[in-house]
Design a protein around this nucleic acid. Sequence first.
DNA 1: GTTTAAATCAAACGATTGTTTAATTATTTT
DNA 2: AAAATAATTAAACAATCGTTTGATTTAAAC
Lengths: 217, 217
Amino acid sequence: MLEINPDWTGKRLELIETAGQLFANSGIDGVSIREIAEKSNVNIASINYYFGSKENLYTESLRYVAWQVRCPLAQKILQDESIDYSSKEQCIEIIRKLIGERIQNYLSDKYPAWYSRLLLRSLIEPPPKCEDIIFQTFIPEFNALVEVLMRCNPANTLAKCRFWAFSILGEISFYVFAEPGIKLALNIAEKYTQKFLSQLQEHITSLILKGLDLKEE
Amino acid sequence: MLEINPDWTGKRLELIETAGQLFANSGIDGVSIREIAEKSNVNIASINYYFGSKENLYTESLRYVAWQVRCPLAQKILQDESIDYSSKEQCIEIIRKLIGERIQNYLSDKYPAWYSRLLLRSLIEPPPKCEDIIFQTFIPEFNALVEVLMRCNPANTLAKCRFWAFSILGEISFYVFAEPGIKLALNIAEKYTQKFLSQLQEHITSLILKGLDLKEE
DNA sequence: GTTTAAATCAAACGATTGTTTAATTATTTT
DNA sequence: AAAATAATTAAACAATCGTTTGATTTAAAC
């Protein structure tokens, strides 16, 4: 798992927040350190003073948002020995919560929208030294999600549960990085509403439950 | 719909193919025209001679790949008056084909992998003058897909069919832009195999059919 | 074969890039 | 209060950026 960085404070944090937002919108090469310095109200040299290089600032911004929007619920659930996976109702509730956590952390106003956007941008264009952060963020969460899905219905194969896990992660991610197109298609302005997000949670949950043959009705 | 460009020939096409691949990997700001010229074995000035600017070259590359990987099947199906949507088997086959077309065009070796990567990158980071291409590519295909889903089961609401359409588009897109992470998680090397892609097609189709209450068994 | 247009080229343009320097100011430590 | 460390600054660094120029070569048109 990703480790917390004690230096996410003061001027360093300010720079991370300002630069991260710019990086999320335009990529590391689309932003100049002068633009970052100007919007942060610091001298250009401060970036190298605090982070050593522009690249390090990007890496730190990524590590920061990856930590912020992480979804450790699946791991917690796996360690909870009081869970009875033979109870259909409990399994349904677990899956609903897992999907809900990711939707809230990625799509709601709990965090600024650029947090998840920077994270997903780094997936399609992993800058140097960022692969570790990406993989340490996604792989453990993915594996834990797969594990939970398998426990909820042991009759399903590993291959199937992996597909379902990607269905969950993929669809939610799509609402992040295709946001402009989606809002145009749905005629939505500004942010996703909580009502829309709970509908989305219901939709994905229902989809997965039917796939797992857990849906009652 | 997007229009074909008669200038996708000769040196112009060579430049588009070379530059597009670089753009897909590193973004418009991550590639220099000198790098493009070198890998295309042309003079630096040729880029401005043929396209006017680097930005125009990006736009043309995007228009080119958007045309190549477009999925017009849904529109064709809508215009086919011989289709009987009360036939469950026919509806299942249509949905399977729709999903299959997108998977083939986005993920198989039918086209170079960077085609779809450039398209999706442009979704999260739309360069100037590219919004039109993006929207003309995705929105009509999305709307057609929604329309087909509604005809297959008129009992479903528009809102639900939109969610399902995004489930299809989102999950397939995820396999494009999260490719490095997915291959690490699944321990896959090189390209997705056709076997894997047909499993994926089966998985998504099954998911949607269950959601539409069309799945027999 | 002559003329026109298209294509290619090396070279240079001004602007901007990330980074570094060295001096100065602020803050903390002793 | 003196010394030492941390933080901030303006200025300059070499390198690279996208673009343009003007000359040269190639191809097409008459």
